[in-house]
């Protein structure tokens, strides 16, 4: 039960989440990647809180992060639904409106 492994796990989760965010073609996958990264952060916080149990700041912060994560997911999916209505696609590479109109 060495928390060091949890930290390694968190790092791997971050890398996988990053890869998901960068490479997948669906907005849902991107959201899943973000969830993975946030979970890795939570994992880290809980592991360190386990090592230093004088206070429970780690766990408190985890709670807040969870709240914000659920907010972010809800927002993301709402936006995704709107995008699906608007562009008939949820592939981010098809949506280029940030670029100047060439």
């Amino acid at each position: 039960m060495n928390p060091t492994y949890l930290i390694y796990t968190a790092i791997v989760l971050v890398a996988i989440g990053t890869a998901l965010v960068l490479t997948r073609k669906s907005l849902l996958f991107i959201l899943i990647g973000i969830e993975l990264i946030l979970n890795a952060v939570n994992l880290n916080l809980v592991a360190f809180n386990h090592l230093y149990p004088q206070n429970v700041n780690g766990q408190t912060t985890t709670l807040f992060i969870m709240a914000i994560a659920i907010c972010e997911t809800a927002c993301g999916i709402a936006i995704m639904i709107q995008v699906a209505r608007q562009y008939k696609t949820i592939t981010p590479s098809s949506i280029q409106d940030l670029k100047e109109q060439a």
């Binding site: 960068l22 997948r24 696609t89």
Partner: peptide
């Protein structure tokens, strides 16, 4: 959102490799 008739463009390999690469490096 996942409906038929939606276009799913293929993701470029450069994007896949660069994404994987940056994740690995990170």
């Amino acid at each position: 959102s996942d409906k038929k008739g939606f276009s799913f463009t293929k993701v470029a390999y450069t994007q896949i490799f660069s994404g994987m690469g940056i994740a690995l490096v990170l």
